[in-house]
Design a protein around this nucleic acid. Structure first.
Lengths: 229, 229
DNA sequence: ATATAGTGTGTATTTTCTACACTAAGTAAT
DNA sequence: ATTACTTAGTGTAGAAAATACACACTATAT
């Protein structure tokens, strides 16, 4: 969000790129602004940092107010502060991204007055964004591309139990390219952070795939070592 | 959604971790404070962001005022803003690191009144730092460790013409570990961003090593591809 | 001429990466 | 029960990259 208080010569805000995965598509949460400037434009959700909040808390609050979710993986990744990025004055904004598993309809809450609506939109068909939000988004995507190659953040986008095909799908969407099935499985299994379950996928009209969990204990041991895709 | 008001007194600053290499040691530039709080403590150089400056410009200015240098490689890497990180109120600070080739005495200029002195201190023997500057430094070092593995920033620390041994030395200091000479050379040469010169090292009392230059044109072609150490 | 200190080079082994295609299992329709 | 359909799940061979490792060369200083 980009609300401005006119008497301030500089304002400090946080904007969030909330990545969500619904099992099929990679989406981000955008709000349609109901105020000038950029009335009726889509924008990244954001807000002013509260007086006694840490930056991380502030980002978590923005996410909570929009989605009702807590305990989500979020990471600060860049500060944007060009004079002139905001038509009404100097606004320095800190960008965060978040990774969210989307589950049905419970992913949005009633929104405040400054926005008409909030919506999960697929990253393959994003509208024009207000302010310099396109740039903020671009840099966020770039960051998670890099990050997913080295750390197991893909799990944050998936339900607790998932199939290897789903996991591969996440990698393909984020990296923007196809991966070889056999090589992918070989590699991801070799990291030793997956726990194979006795359970199978349900409700599919074909052979059900084995379900896996991410094993945090094993990952903790591995931590520090670089993994790569 | 309730609107949280911005903290009117909040201050926005930039702090810099200036890494310098003098051919032997990796150092950072610290200032000894002459004002409360933390009077007489060592601290990272920093300043308030000017009204019409971009963030990058502001960081470049801080560096220029201390060293007289321009055109130095700098990168923003994190924002620190815990309430309580500054005893006198909310100060959000953006951290930058810079990579500087140190050449003799011309690396420092007369300093302003808020500091008693400024000094290049080796990272192997740093004093206690004011505020949360230890944390800011730690994160900066972590960042360049990661970065040097994937992008040719090591050249920023070396003079225009350098030997392979010097280059390896920089990698070893930043990464904090020994590298194998033959493998290092094989790899760095294979990236194809070095230009071998006809010149040799001078003034050494042993066999003079061949000098190399970093070839920016070749690097530009390679850009985007990941290199790794 | 000899001691010294750093330069510069090759190979064999292991590990990782890549490319590639078929059978197995379950569901749905007839 | 048979068949058609859809996705799950698996192995291997060749190429490329990473690693481990040791000695001869060259310039200077004494």
């Amino acid at each position: 969000m980009e609300q401005i208080l006119p008497h301030l010569d500089s304002v400090f805000s946080i904007d969030c790129v909330l990545f969500g995965f619904d099992g099929k598509e990679l989406k981000i949460l955008l709000i349609e602004r109901n105020e000038e400037p950029f009335k009726d434009w889509w924008a990244l959700p954001g807000n002013i940092v509260g007086v006694d909040e840490s930056l991380d808390q502030s980002a978590a609050r923005i996410l909570y107010e929009l989605t009702g979710l807590r305990g989500i993986y979020m990471e600060q990744y860049y500060a944007f502060g060009d004079p002139g990025r905001h038509p009404q004055g100097r606004v320095i904004t800190l960008a965060y991204y978040a990774l969210i598993r989307l589950g049905g309809d419970k992913d949005l809450r009633p929104i405040s007055t400054y926005a008409k609506q909030a919506n999960w939109l697929p990253i393959t068909a994003l509208p024009k964004l207000a302010f310099d939000h396109q740039r903020i988004y671009d840099k966020g995507l770039e960051k998670i591309k890099r990050r997913i190659k080295h750390q197991p953040i893909a799990f944050e986008l998936l339900p607790e139990k998932f199939t290897l095909t789903q996991l591969q799908h996440v990698y393909e969407l984020v990296l923007g390219k196809k991966l070889d099935k056999r090589n992918f499985r070989k590699k991801i299994v070799s990291f030793g952070v997956l726990k194979e379950l006795d359970e199978k996928q349900k409700g599919v009209s074909y052979r059900a795939a084995t379900l896996y969990k991410f094993d945090k204990r094993k990952y903790a041991k591995l931590f520090g070592k670089e993994i790569s895709f």
